[in-house]
Each structure stands twice: as structure tokens, then as C-alpha cells.
Amino acid sequence: MRRQIPVVITFIVGSVLIISVFIPHKPFGQLGENFSVYFDIIAVFAFILGAGNLLRVHGNRIYKKHKDWPYSVVTVAGFTVMMIAGLFKIGGSPGITGDLTEPGSMFEDLYMYVFTPLMATMFALLAFYVASASHRAFRAKNKEATVLLLAAFVILLGRTPFGVELTSWLPDPLSFLEIPNLASWIMSVPNMAGQRAIMVGIALGVIAMALRVILGVERTYLGADSE
């Protein structure tokens, strides 16, 4: 019973959502929207589960002096400070409708001067990792890898003004060989063709997966063995 009910709910909701795509008339047209709203409501309450888990796991680590427990102190402290600053709107207009992002509020300052640079730093790591990954991956080991290497070269150069200068001397009839034009061709022809093929495969995979879930053939995600 515990596993039958979720399967039945999945089947009904999945089928109704598919039908609502084709039938715009009430009540079907509205159902898609309503289910989206229901999901949001559930997701909002699920935040409480997440926060509770975070505090439990890290609280335990601190209590038991688990290896690397000081990191857990930082996590719990960061969570608490940000939550208090947001809930009590310290330094900003009080009340439920008070603006969190008001200049001078503690939440805004924490967001601007702590959160923003930290996030930008993490994203910026990508530039370093792209360099080390390309140094390792782009080796002309075989024919396919050589083609990949050449394409990478053209795209990298084509994305810079240096690439424009490098081949700008080419006469007009050969302008298609200019690096930015070659880069643009690689992106819009072979790259796009490959991406589309992958996307068609993915779309079909999604259909098969969705049907397995809707029909209850696949139940692992419900914590149950498949039928």
C-alpha cells in the first residue's frame, strides 16, 4: 500500500499533465499551472527538511568532535548568521513586507560583500580548471583527437581579437578561411549538428524514462525495487 499510492499518484498526475498540453480548455489547461504551484509549495516546505538535516549532520559532527569538525562550525555559524539577518531584517525596514535588499541592511551587506565575492571566486576557478583539463585532454592521440584538437584551436583563437588579426590579410575570395569565420562555422554547423543529434537522443530517452515512471515500471526512485 505504501508503494502503491505514490505509483497511482504518479500515474494520474503524469497522464493529466500530458493531456493538458493538448486540451487548453478548463479544467485541463489550468491543471498544468496548478501542479506547478503545488510543487513549489511542497519545495518551500522541503527547505525545512534540508535545513534540519544540515543542522543535525553538522551539529553531530561538532558534538562528537568528528574529524574536521571546525568546518562544521563555520557551516552552522554561516547558516545561523545569514538566517537571523534575513528573518529579523537587521538594519533594514522591519515587518513582513520590509525590503530585504534595502541598502544598509545586514542581509544586503552580507550578500554584497561576502556571498557575491565567494560565489564569483568559485566560478572563476573554472578558468584555471579549463586550462589544466585542456592541457591534458587535447592531445593528438589519433585521427579523431586530432580533429578535436584543431577545432579547439580554431575556436579558442576565433574568440579573441588576436585570431582576427592573424588571418585578416587573406584576400576576399578566401575570407571563409579567416579564423573567426571558421570558428563560427564550426559552432554553427558541426557543433550544432552534433548537439542536435544528442538532444534528439536525450528527448527520446526522456520519453522512455518518463513512461517507465508513469507506468510504474521503474520505482527505484520511490525507494522500492522495480516491479
Partner: peptide, 14 residues
């Protein structure tokens, strides 16, 4: 400049 450095490392790697 960063792109050129990446290209340089790819060349060296090869």
C-alpha cells in the same frame, strides 16, 4: 591573453 596561454599549453602538451 588567457586564451593564448591555454593554446600555448596545448601546443606544449602535444
Amino acid at each position: 591573453v588567457a586564451h593564448i596561454v591555454i593554446v600555448f599549453f596545448i601546443v606544449i602538451g602535444n
